[in-house]
C-alpha cells in the first residue's frame, strides 16, 4: 500500500495556526516554543539564522545550540540542545531591571525596550539560562583590510551585513555605533517583527530538523497545543520556578 504522502509541511501548518491567532483576541494569545531534542540535528542553522535575521554582532547570540557527546565507545551519541530565551512566565530578569526596560508583554513574550535600557546588565546576572548577552559594540569586519579598487574591503563588507542594524521590534535603529542597541542587553524576542506580519520566527522556519515549533499555546487547534500534551515534554531548570514558555521534548 502506498504510504500516504505528507500534504503540507509542518511550517505551513504552524503559519496557519499563527494567522488564526493573530486574527483572534490577542489578549488570549500566549506564544510558546517547543523544541524536540530528538529531531534536532545539531546543525546550528537556527543559531546563524537568528544572527543573520537580527544582525547580531560578535559576542551577542540569542540561540546557541549546545552539543555534548554521551556514552562510551561504541555506544555513543551526540546530543544537541538549542537554547533560545525561555520567555519565562515568571522571569527573574524583568524583576531585576531597575527601569522596566525589559518586561513580559501581553502575549508572554519577554522583551527589551532598547530605548529605555540603561545597560546595567543586572538582567544578565539574573537570568538562570544565560539567555541574555550584552552588545559591546563589536564588529565582525573589525580588523579586515580596506584597499578599495583592489579588494571589496572592510567598509563595503560591513555595509553588506553590519552597518545597518536589523529591524528588531520592527524598528529602524541608528547605524551601528551610533546608539542602541549598542550598550544594551539583548536577547531572543521570538522575532516579534516577523510575527507582526504573519511570519514564524526565523529559527523556526530555518530548522532543517523541524525540531522547533512555535505557536499560541492557548489555541487548542494549534500544533503546539497538541505537542504540549506529549509525555516527552520537559523544561529547563524547572526547579527555579521560572516557568519557561519554551518547552522541550526528549
Amino acid at each position: 500500500m502506498a504510504r500516504i504522502l505528507p500534504t503540507e509541511d509542518m511550517l505551513i501548518r504552524m503559519q496557519k495556526d499563527l494567522k488564526r491567532s493573530l486574527a483572534g483576541d490577542m489578549s488570549e494569545v500566549r506564544w510558546s516554543m517547543v523544541i524536540d531534542v530528538a529531531k534536532c540535528a545539531g546543525c546550528h542553522a537556527c543559531t546563524i539564522a537568528c544572527v543573520a535575521e537580527n544582525k547580531l554582532p560578535p559576542g551577542v547570540v540569542y540561540r546557541p545550540v549546545i552539543e555534548e557527546e554521551v556514552g562510551k565507545y561504541p555506544h555513543v551519541r551526540q546530543r544537541f540542545l538549542p537554547r533560545p530565551c525561555m520567555h519565562c512566565q515568571n522571569p527573574p530578569c524583568t524583576k531585576a531591571c531597575p527601569v522596566k526596560a525589559t518586561y513580559k508583554n501581553e502575549q508572554g513574550v519577554v522583551v527589551i525596550n532598547y530605548k529605555h535600557c540603561i545597560g546595567c546588565r543586572y538582567c544578565l546576572v539574573a537570568c538562570p539560562y544565560s539567555a541574555r548577552t550584552s552588545d559591546f559594540g563589536e564588529w565582525y569586519t573589525q580588523g579586515t583590510p580596506e584597499f578599495p579598487g583592489k579588494i571589496v574591503g572592510k567598509t563595503k563588507a560591513a555595509e553588506g551585513y553590519e552597518t545597518v542594524p536589523a529591524a528588531e521590534y520592527g524598528k529602524d535603529w541608528p547605524k551601528r555605533g551610533h546608539g542602541s542597541p549598542v550598550g544594551n542587553a539583548r536577547k531572543c524576542h521570538f522575532c516579534l517583527h516577523r510575527i507582526a506580519v504573519g511570519m514564524l520566527p526565523a529559527c523556526v522556519t530555518t530548522c532543517v530538523g523541524r525540531a522547533t515549533f512555535f505557536g499560541n499555546r492557548n489555541d487548542p487547534e494549534s500544533l503546539i497545543y497538541q505537542l504540549l500534551g506529549s509525555p516527552r515534554r520537559f523544561r529547563l531548570k524547572e526547579e527555579l520556578g521560572t516557568q519557561p514558555a519554551v518547552y522541550y521534548l526528549h
Binding site: 546563524i48 579588494i151 571589496v152 563595503k156
Partner: peptide, 26 residues
C-alpha cells in the same frame, strides 16, 4: 513572500561570502 523554507547554517551565512572583504574586484 511571507513563507520561508529552511536552510542550513552555511546558506544562512551566504551574505558573508558575497560581502567578503577579501574578494577581488579587478
Amino acid at each position: 513572500a511571507i513563507i520561508d523554507g529552511s536552510l542550513c547554517p552555511k546558506g544562512q551565512a551566504g551574505v558573508q561570502a558575497m560581502y567578503d572583504p577579501y574578494r577581488i574586484v579587478k
